[in-house]
Computed example of a mutant assay.
Amino acid sequence: MNETVTFGEVLMRLSPEGNKKISQSNRLEFYFGGTEMNVGASLAYFGNEVKHVTCVSDDIVGEAAISTMKRYGLDTGSVVKCNAPLGLYFLEVGAVMRSSTIAYNRAHSAFSGITPGMVDWKEVLAGSDWFHWTGITPAISEGAWRTLEEGLKQARKNGMNVTADPTYRKDLWNYGKDARKILAGLLEHSTIFIGGVNEINEILGTDHSGDKDGFVKAAKELLNRVPSLTKVFDKVRNGGNASCQKISARAWNGKEYLETEALEITHVVDRIGTGDAYAAGLLYGLQHFDDEKAITFANAACALKHTIAGDVNLVSADEVMQVAEGHISGRIKR
């Protein structure tokens, strides 16, 4: 059994019911989520052992977040607490040509106050095989960046597989450090890259095109410049509008180019967490299948998340495999 460790902020999401705008509603639904936690929870639903490391508020909201993580099947034994509020974000779910809109309230959150030394990485990572991180965590605060860096160094010292999804969110980098330099440094402690041409261009300062040839050239240059990385996996989205999306996956595994057929989602229920669902599907796929089957599984997992309300992809590995094998009619199961 592969044990995976994820590290990142847990947020409370607040949304009006359905597709309403906040200005026309006096009721908000809430969910707990967060990029890395979403990945871990999805993996736990697939049957994997997953430990999520984070810092939550030392109050009833933080306790509710921990309770939710436990319900998802996550090991919360390494969660720490502090006297600061849990981060929030507000979401208005769009429809058709109206885009979804997000407003964050996380600048002084519990997680932003995490510092090296609050997490005993040697103990946390003992016996684990995989470590997953994203570019959101080091963007939150210098303490979060340094804590992640410490964990990555220990993970590589332990010989673990390290998957990096270095998502660049410009608006989050507010503590005066060079995002490109930090992300590039963290990649040196990683083995698998989850991202596309845009992410590679941002980190390397290149201008590769987004077509097949551009992706392969970008991936080859990334692997050449960051020797610890061995493979590059990308999710491709072609959205007609907020309610209709088409997704596929592609990869350069150091030897050959791989791609999946596109899956069309004609009625999007919730787009939040779809990239996290892809990452979770990929991790599960890499742990159980070859690269080609892994990206097919990941793409199917991503597609299914579009049909699930909330941040987490609450589906089993068997449900994903059904879609991966072409069973997409949505017929009632009796």
Results as ranks from 00 to 15, higher is better:
245 Q>M: 14
247 I>L: 15
305 K>G: 00
204 L>H: 01
114 I>T: 08
202 E>C: 06
11 L>V: 12
317 A>N: 05
320 V>L: 13
1 M>A: 02
190 S>R: 02
97 M>I: 10
10 V>L: 14
267 H>W: 04
205 G>N: 08
223 L>P: 03
83 N>F: 07
77 G>N: 06
19 N>K: 13
1 M>D: 09
56 V>Q: 04
82 C>T: 08
194 I>P: 08
52 H>M: 09
187 L>A: 02
294 A>W: 05
78 S>Q: 08
309 A>M: 04
139 A>D: 02
12 M>P: 04
253 N>C: 12
289 F>K: 10
253 N>M: 15
1 M>V: 06
314 L>R: 12
124 V>Y: 00
22 I>M: 15
206 T>R: 13
163 T>L: 14
316 S>G: 01
221 E>C: 07
103 A>W: 13
53 V>S: 01
26 N>W: 09
76 T>E: 01
82 C>R: 08
65 A>Q: 04
70 K>S: 07
184 A>R: 10
10 V>N: 10
264 E>K: 08
228 S>E: 04
328 I>D: 05
202 E>N: 09
219 A>F: 02
142 E>P: 01
19 N>V: 06
152 L>R: 00
172 L>K: 09
176 G>S: 10
77 G>T: 12
107 A>C: 01
36 E>R: 12
248 S>T: 06
11 L>Y: 10
96 V>L: 09
113 G>Q: 06
10 V>S: 07
205 G>M: 14
40 G>K: 09
163 T>K: 09
126 A>L: 04
108 H>Q: 10
227 P>A: 05
98 R>L: 05
1 M>I: 07
126 A>D: 06
151 G>P: 06
184 A>K: 13
139 A>N: 06
214 G>E: 06
147 T>C: 13
7 F>E: 02
162 V>F: 02
217 K>I: 01
127 G>T: 07
95 A>M: 07
74 L>P: 00
119 V>K: 00
310 G>F: 05
329 S>R: 11
176 G>D: 08
246 K>Q: 15
